[in-house]
Amino acid sequence: MFANRFITFFLCMAFAPTAVLCGCNSAPKVNEAEVSLKLRSIQTRSYDTTNANNALRVAMATLQDLGFVIDNADADLGTVSATKLDSAATKMTITVRMRGKTQILVRANAQYRLLAVTDPIFYQQFFTAYSKSLFLEAHEVDTAAPGL
């Protein structure tokens, strides 16, 4: 009886690392260009304003509202990066650039621990809070449109 239990235990322990590694082994990488086109539209909104500086300031205020601490920002390049520390780290970058003469494009991307955040709900939540602070309505952006 004891020998039986010992054999079971031995088999489990001997191959446990293999099983854990198999669990970790992710699916092969799919075509990233295709993913990025879809992801880009999830992460991007356009706004009817030309004040990029204000758009960046509002991005920083929104990120602070959502519990992030700003890591860095560049007014010339139109970027803001921030990190939120809860049980894990979430890092987020916002970029703002002109689209034509009457609009700006705002793009957000995030990572949670070592994973890229691709869930549309996350970005919807961010842009809802951002639009409220900017006092402007967000427009969904067509990924095939020029200038994106």
Partner: peptide, 13 residues
């Protein structure tokens, strides 16, 4: 390998 569903909830301050 996955993001917990409630980990990214953005709570209004």
């Amino acid at each position: 390998d996955t993001v917990p569903p409630d980990a990214l909830l953005m709570k209004e301050p």
